[in-house]
């Protein structure tokens, strides 16, 4: 997760006030956090939620999808349906699971118990991230595995690779938002501020990010910023169209939700429709920039896991509790 793996015990790092990371400590904190952070009904509730989501959507697909079954794409369609919902729901769950992770312990004072024991602040942050991520990831796994039997039975054809790919990317996506939540939670002593920060994150990626693209398009139409023109071959001959400049697409690609969809198409052929891919190919004259390619979505997800927690690891070492 972090590139820092200081061993701590022997080192006399008098100059650097930063703390070290002990894997044993991280494990102890993560285990404690997993036991304490969730009531058991919450864990099973999440598992049942994912299970129900998969089974219900499978039902829909199999009910309406005789054509799909004929084309052998039922699992792909299921992945698209499920990911449309998890794209919205996973951030909510992760933010709710994570918002109190550190701020709550600082506000109540229970962090004094953690830090009276020989854990560094970095151990505590990483342990919290792992503990909360485990809650989300394991409930996803339980839901997906239990549902697999029913999904396989209902769908005419069951593509295990697509299915596991969706699970894997959903875990990655959930961990990214957990990292954002835990990190923001470590920046404040007030759960009220932490809660506001979580709402802020949600608003940022669900409203502001979409608004940016719309706003840029508006500005482009008014000529404030210049777009890039491209030609589309139609039945009535070539038509000149304008698209947003490259950097606007880059901004769009940073959104974790966008990256989740993008990265899903590494593991399944489903998430991006063929139409989208063709459109992108036309817009960029067949030369699709790296940040719109599937692997970049995967990197962006990793970015959203690593960068927030790295900033928090640095910051949390500096403050008075």
């Amino acid at each position: 997760m972090s590139s820092e793996t200081g061993t701590g015990t022997g080192g006399s790092d008098r100059s650097a006030p930063g703390s070290s990371i002990h894997p044993e400590s991280v494990r102890a904190v993560a285990k404690k956090d997993f036991q304490d952070s969730v009531r058991s009904w919450m864990f099973w509730g999440l598992s049942i939620f994912f299970f129900t989501l998969l089974v219900a959507l499978t039902g829909v697909v199999s009910y309406f999808g005789e054509d799909l079954a004929a084309q052998d794409v039922t699992t792909e369609v299921l992945v698209v349906f499920v990911s449309e919902i998890t794209r919205l729901v996973l951030p909510l769950i992760a933010l709710i699971l994570g918002w109190k992770a550190i701020a709550g312990e600082r506000e109540s004072g229970s962090i004094k118990i953690l830090l009276s024991l020989p854990h560094s602040r970095k151990d505590v942050l990483l342990g919290k991230l792992i503990g909360r991520s485990a809650v989300l990831s394991l409930s996803l796994i339980v839901g997906f595995v239990l549902a697999a039997i029913i999904v396989a039975a209902l769908l005419g054809s069951f593509d295990i690779v697509d299915y596991l790919g969706l699970l894997a990317m959903s875990i990655l996506y959930g961990v990214a938002y957990t990292s954002i939540a835990v990190s923001l939670s470590s920046l404040t002593r007030s759960t009220t501020i932490a809660g506001a920060a979580m709402v802020g994150v949600f608003v940022l990626f669900y409203i502001v990010w979409n608004a940016i693209t719309s706003a840029l398009r508006l500005l482009m139409d008014r000529g404030t910023i210049s777009g890039e023109s491209y030609t589309v071959e139609t039945n009535e001959g070539p038509v000149e169209l304008e698209r947003l400049p490259d950097w606007a697409f880059f901004i769009e690609s940073i959104d974790p939700g966008y990256a989740y969809n993008n990265a899903l198409s590494i593991v399944t052929g489903a998430a991006e429709s063929d139409l989208d891919v063709q459109l992108e190919a036309v817009m960029f004259n067949g030369d699709i920039p790296f940040y719109l390619q599937d692997w970049f979505g995967f990197l962006i997800l990793l970015f959203w896991i690593v960068v927030p927690i790295a900033v928090a690891l640095y910051r949390f070492d500096q403050v008075d509790l």
Binding site: T9, S12, S19, S120
Partner: peptide
């Protein structure tokens, strides 16, 4: 400050 883990 620097050796807090050993202390604790």
């Amino acid at each position: 400050q620097t050796r807090s883990r050993e202390i604790r």
